[in-house]
């Protein structure tokens, strides 16, 4: 790693099922926000078709023309041939960078010798895996949610020692409900007593997912179709200086239905001033950051680094 570069902000793919008008409006606004990269596309469920694949690609091109980087993010759990066809269309788009969320995408992109990014559902837990993917074309990775800081630091240090540390960027999923698991079963349909094949698009009712509580009323999970997310909101933004020192280049903020503009603005202003943003007004409950410190993901740890 050479001189520390300025920390960039990325807007992750919208993980929930928002109606078409909401999505288009969101990206029309986001194009004016102080973010460097925007991820687009449906990463959770192929039945969600608010935008057709070609429309996602067109939207990504439009955003690219505003000077921001657009990235097309692919489906995470791929089972059907129709899903592979959609994947092929995304990978064949011609000019927009693709984020692979399944090894099928890595396969198609590396075969075409295209540079690619990998999302947090691609299991990179060590330097050898990262190096292997880098040689296949990886130019950016977002670390798995549960990867501890200590492991990330070791990977980035080894990457430098092996001489490939400058050939990729590191992104950290830093804000939002964490995607934790994927299943064949749709839990949102189940919660509404619908079969998956006739789900009536129940996900549309939950723009921030469906909250799950323990029987003693602790927020535990967030159901988002076949994806299960953390109940608590991850907030690692206060760790940004430490991340920057480790060699992290991008902070990913995961879209939610409320306060996005404020969250981005606060974060951007703090990065510019070298300060710590206070996002607590936008987080229900205590938030969480345990994974970063090698602890249970739902815990909120005090950090010396993040003390103002």
């Amino acid at each position: 790693m050479t001189a520390m570069s300025a920390m960039k902000i990325s807007l992750g793919p919208v993980l929930y099922y928002w109606p078409r008008a909401t999505l288009l409006d969101f990206y029309a606004q986001a194009a004016g926000w102080p973010v460097d990269s925007l991820y687009l596309g449906e990463t959770v469920c192929s039945k969600r078709r608010a935008l057709r694949t070609v429309e996602w690609i067109d939207l990504a091109r439009e955003i690219s023309q505003t000077g921001k980087q657009a990235v097309l993010s692919t489906l995470t759990l791929i089972e059907a041939e129709s899903e592979l066809s959609t994947l092929a269309r995304l990978c064949d788009n011609g000019d927009v960078l693709v984020e692979a969320n399944d090894m099928a995408a890595v396969h198609l992109l590396s075969e075409k010798r295209l540079p690619f990014a990998v999302g947090p559902a691609i299991n990179v837990y060590n330097t050898r895996s990262l190096h292997y993917l880098q040689r296949l074309g990886l130019m950016r990775w977002t670390a798995p949610m549960e990867l501890p800081r200590m492991t990330l630091a070791a990977i980035l240090e080894e990457a430098d020692d092996l001489g490939f540390g400058e050939r990729f960027e590191t992104e950290i999923f830093a804000f939002g409900h964490m995607p934790l698991a994927y299943s064949a079963r749709c839990f949102t349909a189940r919660a509404n007593n619908q079969p998956k094949d006739g789900c009536e698009f129940e996900c549309l009712k939950y723009p921030d997912g469906l909250a799950v509580y323990t029987q003693d009323d602790e927020r535990l999970l967030t159901l988002n179709g076949i994806q299960t997310q953390s109940g608590d909101v991850l907030n690692l933004i206060p760790e940004w200086k430490d991340m920057q020192a480790l060699g992290v280049q991008l902070l990913r903020i995961s879209p939610q239905s409320q306060h996005m503009r404020e969250i981005i603005d606060h974060t951007h202003a703090a990065l510019r001033r070298g300060a710590l943003p206070d996002l607590s007004a936008f987080i229900e409950g205590a938030g969480c950051n345990g994974y970063w410190f090698g602890q249970a993901g739902h815990l909120q740890m005090e950090s010396e680094r993040s003390m103002p």
Partner: peptide, 8 residues
């Protein structure tokens, strides 16, 4: 692809 255990 399941991190529910580590979340807890």
């Amino acid at each position: 692809r399941c991190q529910l255990s580590s979340y807890a």
